[in-house]
């Protein structure tokens, strides 16, 4: 925990992590949490929407390919519910096309799975920073 306190962390980032791969969500949330981010997980598109309804988030990480809903649809709903919340999309390799499409619908950026955790953290921080800039 020493490391975390050393980190000149800005106020806690609240992250919504949406992926229907439960194993993936679990380990990823643990790792991200360790890096000073509050992670709330949702294992499906509908669960994510419900979660977002209850609570605000600074940033969302959204898997494009889920069992119940298409990631793009979820993205559209997110954007309606909280237009200022940046959404970073995760895609399987080869789905860049839909990822690019997602950017058209307001997604902040996308990463292809499997990715380096550091890249994700960096992207999250960038997104927050940019959001802060635009907010101010």
């Amino acid at each position: 925990m020493e490391k975390m306190t050393k980190n000149p962390a800005p106020p806690h980032i609240r992250l919504l992590l949406v992926d229907d791969e439960v194993g993936f969500v679990d380990v990823l949330s643990k790792r991200i949490s360790r890096r000073g981010i509050d992670v709330t997980t949702a294992a499906s598109g509908s669960e994510a929407i419900q979660t977002l309804r209850r609570q605000d988030f600074d940033v969302a990480v959204l898997d494009l390919k889920m069992e119940d809903m298409d990631g793009i649809e979820v993205l559209k709903i997110f954007k309606k519910m909280d237009p200022n919340m940046p959404v970073i999309m995760l895609t399987g390799h080869g789905s860049e096309h839909s990822a690019r499409e997602g950017k058209k619908f307001g997604a902040y950026d996308y990463l292809t799975k499997p990715y380096e955790l550091d890249d994700l953290i960096q992207k999250i921080k960038e997104a927050i920073r940019q959001k802060g800039n635009s907010d101010e």
Binding site: E2, V27, K30, R34, G94, K113, P114
Partner: peptide, 29 residues
């Protein structure tokens, strides 16, 4: 082959992340 590759991506990602998690834990004192 593409279908197989796609399906394999998720478990591989989980394995890599879990390994990363162990790495994270090893950082503890």
């Amino acid at each position: 082959a593409a279908g197989v590759a796609h399906e394999i991506n998720n478990p591989v990602a989980i394995m890599v992340e879990e390994a990363g998690w162990i790495g994270d834990l090893l950082e503890e004192e």
